[in-house]
């Protein structure tokens, strides 16, 4: 079963732009060949680190949205750990969160619909109907 993950990693600041692209390319290749899917790869640019990591004070942040199995994720993490250029990484599982957000959104949409309908016939009732929605 494929799950969605976010993999964010920091590349040391002294690598070239071309090397960074190559690194992302290589990781993407690894994921795809392992049966996963890279939905988006985002270079967030050079950023100051909040604390010193391996004697570096800034680094390139890269974010990958990945659809993969748990086994593949451990493999990718192992590769990241081995990579000399990657100084820090974090993997966050997102599918549970996405499911929760979809549920909240659906709930909110259904509430808006109900309060919008009686507003046409009775204006006085509308604020009373809108208030429980605001409280949630």
């Amino acid at each position: 079963m494929n799950r969605s993950y976010e993999i964010m990693f920091i590349v040391r600041p002294d690598v070239e732009e071309a090397d960074l692209d190559k690194l992302i390319e290589g990781l993407t290749g690894n994921i795809v060949s392992g049966g996963g899917e890279v939905k988006a790869a985002e270079k967030m640019g050079r950023r100051r680190l909040a604390y010193t990591v391996r004697k570096f004070n800034d680094g390139f942040y890269v974010l990958l949205h990945v659809l993969a199995e748990g086994g593949l994720i451990t493999e990718i993490e192992r590769r990241l750990r081995v990579q000399e250029q990657v100084i820090k990484f974090i993997t966050v599982r997102m599918d549970e969160e996405e499911k929760r957000l979809a549920k909240v959104k659906a709930l909110r949409d259904s509430k808006v619909k109900r309060s919008a309908l009686p507003a046409v016939e009775a204006v006085a009732e509308a604020p009373a109907a809108a208030e429980p929605a605001a409280a949630v």
Binding site: M8, I10, L49, Y51, V53
Partner: peptide
């Protein structure tokens, strides 16, 4: 806590 881990926020 996740943000601290990836050095976006300080410990």
């Amino acid at each position: 806590k996740q943000s601290r881990n990836i050095a976006l926020l300080p410990f």
